[in-house]
Design a protein around this nucleic acid. Structure first.
Lengths: 368, 368
DNA sequence: TTAGGGTGTGGAACCAGTTCCAAGCTTCTT
DNA sequence: AAGAAGCTTGGAACTGGTTCCACACCCTAA
């Protein structure tokens, strides 16, 4: 038909003779076969598939019918070469032992928004130390090839060296900003996060509105920027009501739950005794609650409690925890949206979107 | 150089003139440019990249040096056309409101095993009704294109119609079998699961070993095959000790936690009063525990409790729940492994791998 | 009647790798 | 010394959609 004898058929015959037959793919229909079957040119098929330029109604219908009849599904790879778009992004989770529900829901937000736009989402994980120099960071396989993905959504704990590495391979990215650590302010990149400061401010105001005056902040390790911001929100709330801010900080590195459990003594021994505790996050709140239960101190009758994040723990506690809800799916959606904008406008100035949080009233705050 | 005047450069010049300049990709190096720079043929570059056939040591080094110098990264898409392998699989989660920790950890197992073999993992979600006929199931975009992924790992609740649909597009797959529902036994496909029956049998024996004789099974809706299997494990344990099996089943559809909370009355009112309850899963166990707490009935002093799954709830409970641990990452790993085998041996007979579970002793069982 | 504009269509050239044949150069065998 | 065999290597042909130029055709206006 075209050129010399087809090489493919020669190879196939040989394979059959030797009984090696791999038959990876059962010889898929190509656009040229469809063109021949529908008695049109290949260009027309392509035009129908991309529903782009004008094709006469009858031709279009004939082509579609042929496509259906032959069960033709275009090869994704071939299309991408010329499109210069993979229509695929990677959700990269860094430095997490496992995919916690918090990030799982962000991923889910990314996926649901992406799939509506026929974009695909790859999941990859990465472990590196904050002190690994950029050129020694071992990126996952997805980022070693070129053209596999169009961009990156970074989640997990993000240190400057990782950003530098990503920038060095010229891969567009958006970072979930709340867990970005140690970044100088002039460092510019696209980011989406939620509002630590105002979330905690709102929670603090709520407690004050309920008549609480002696409120402590159980913050754990305040060197984490997000806990710092939450603390500042709490402090702002106290200051505007002329109340004294009290920070219970971690003395040694430990898990949040452990910190909560162990710091309850330091809270209860204060004079005057606090009527409420604001926890830096739900895990700390859970630790506090558990310890209080063991001391037979009732929440909220003896002490009120609020958390931050609205994790699973919050509803599992008894009474369920009043906390600051973070809309995790929405964060994922916003990340994906911003990444697509970046891809369409590579020279656009960097943006930093901060999503609002919501205070959820459940059962751990008592009116004084 | 070759052919008529390059079309690309013409288009670029025009774009610049009109100030539209998209510059999606900053003009990547191609294999031909590398070949020219290294003064070898394109075939040689390809051979070096695939470290396949023999290339002389000095040529290989010269090529590698040139690749480094030009910062060349081969285009993933082009390679895939001829390789006829996407080196990518899709983790498809069906009929879940969100990516629960349980499945998140399976996904993580898939990813960590895959990335070690330079395979990529796409995440996609799907919602469909058990009664949607196969041809009406709206598969996610990944599965509508052809050649994007090599195979599929199915998780979430899987009904026969979905399998039929997947089979109809000739996509190799492995299913996480514990949540497969309504499948006739002759239906053959690759699957990986864990051992509901023996897990519960082990747990029941453990309770009996601790001296318990009046043990009820809080099973919820036993029409789920996996709960049925767990119940059978419990029954077997009771039977082999000549004890009477008691099933507390759900009377109406409700969440597992709700069922646990509401069925505590039915358990405690039995005569003689049970000394232990076996829950169909950790959520039910959590519901039971919460209700017991409110009735001021102590676990394990007044009643012992065991669960199944080892979810987050288990360690959050106080005392932490003794339960049957499922190795979620291992399931993911086994799924990925089986899928790769299937891809390499398309005609291999179907396999069904059942992974063992492990009983974890924590604090909810008392010795009588 | 003819020029001009718009629409519809075929197909060669293209993308960026891979594959394989042929040919050049050694080295080994007889 | 001639031929065989082995190792390298270049490059044409290939993969399978996409793009764009050229051309056919139809309709309208002068």
């Amino acid at each position: 038909m075209r050129g010399p004898v087809s090489r493919r058929s020669g190879r196939e015959a040989e394979a059959t003779r030797d009984h090696i037959v791999m038959e990876v793919v059962p010889r898929k229909t190509t656009i040229r076969e469809v063109a021949q079957a529908a008695a049109v040119g290949v260009g027309t098929i392509s035009r129908v598939l991309n529903s782009s330029s004008q094709v006469s109604r009858e031709t279009r219908e004939r082509v579609l019918e042929t496509i259906r009849r032959l069960g033709f599904r275009p090869n994704a790879q071939a299309r991408r070469i010329l499109k210069r778009r993979a229509e695929m992004v990677c959700f990269l989770l860094s430095n997490r032992d496992f995919l916690h529900p918090f990030h799982a829901r962000i991923l889910q937000g990314v996926e649901s928004y992406a799939s509506g736009l026929k974009q695909h989402v790859l999941f990859a994980a990465l472990h590196y130390s904050p002190r690994t120099p950029p050129d020694r960071i071992d990126l996952p396989p997805v980022l070693q090839e070129h053209g596999l993905i169009d961009g990156l959504i970074l989640a997990g704990t993000i240190y400057p060296n990782l950003l530098r590495k990503i920038e060095s391979i010229h891969m567009p990215f958006v970072a979930f900003s709340n867990n970005v650590v140690g970044m100088s302010d002039e460092q510019q990149f696209d980011q989406v996060g939620f509002d630590d400061f105002n979330g905690m401010l709102r929670a603090t105001r709520y407690l004050i509105g309920k008549g609480h005056r002696q409120i402590v902040f159980a913050g754990g390790d305040i060197s984490y920027p997000w806990l710092r911001r939450r603390f500042e929100g709490y402090r702002q709330g106290m200051r505007e009501n002329k109340l004294k801010a009290v920070l219970i900080a971690a003395r040694s590195p430990q898990s949040f739950v452990d910190f909560g459990q162990k710091s309850i003594g330091r809270i209860l021994s204060r004079q005057p005794r606090p009527t409420a505790a604001v926890a830096g996050n739900d895990e700390i709140a859970y630790g506090l609650w558990r310890s209080l239960r063991r001391h037979a101190i009732k929440v909220p009758d003896d002490i009120s409690l609020v958390g931050f994040d609205d994790r699973e723990e919050a509803v599992l506690m008894d009474p369920p925890l009043s906390t600051v809800r973070v809309h995790k799916e929405e964060i994922g959606e916003a990340c994906m949206k911003m990444l697509l904008e970046r891809l369409h406008h590579p020279r656009m100035t960097f943006s930093h979107r901060i999503l609002p949080t919501e205070f959820v009233i459940r059962g751990t705050v008592r009116r004084l």
